[in-house]
């Protein structure tokens, strides 16, 4: 074995998760009860689980997917939103690794953003930093806890309305 290039490029957690999900699908692995049910309900003949690649890959796929599901990256649901955030961040004078860390941990408060970006207070004024957080909240809204339940429901109702509209259009 020879190492030709130690770091060809960086990957974000999201990209890794997508890659591993493809692998999981390809090999028909099931890691949770829901997966299991889905697998059993699958009417197609494609029920065979492949193991030619060894157990280790299955273990690491399960663990990394669990890690990503527990991390803040789990809220990224579509490549389009991911792209939009990247385009937005490109407008800032940020290092590549800093952008990547923002994408990976999606800071929701000033103090976490300051922890990720070195000398953030000198490089960006408060407004600019706040705009990053606002953008993240706008693209990937977090479900607030009980106190704002009503708002959430209203939001959901709106979403349903939207769904119906799109369905009509189709």
């Amino acid at each position: 074995m020879k190492i030709l290039n130690e770091r060809d490029s960086f990957l974000s957690n999201y990209e890794v998760a997508e890659h591993l999900k493809d692998i999981k699908k390809k090999y028909n692995w099931t890691f949770t009860k829901e997966d299991e049910e889905e697998h059993n309900n699958d009417k197609r003949k494609n029920r065979k689980r492949f193991a030619a690649c060894g157990l280790n890959l299955e273990v690491i796929t399960r663990d990394i997917l669990a890690y990503v599901a527990n991390s803040s990256t789990a809220v990224i649901d579509s490549p389009a939103k991911f792209q939009e955030l990247m385009v937005f961040l490109n407008g800032f004078d940020l290092m590549k690794v800093e952008k990547l860390q923002i994408v990976n941990s999606l800071p929701r408060s000033m103090v976490t953003l300051y922890a990720l970006v070195e000398e953030c207070d000198q490089r960006f004024d408060e407004e600019r930093s706040q705009s990053i957080i606002d953008k993240i909240n706008e693209l990937f809204p977090v479900e607030e806890e009980e106190e704002e339940e009503e708002e959430e429901e209203a939001g959901e109702a709106e979403e349903h309305a939207n769904d119906e509209n799109t369905a009509m259009e189709e």
Binding site: L4, L11, A52, Q101
Partner: peptide, 18 residues
Amino acid sequence: MFILSELSDLVRIPPHTF
């Protein structure tokens, strides 16, 4: 964080996978 590394290796392909 995750990175991509470029490696080269000599791999034995077992006959039953030909």
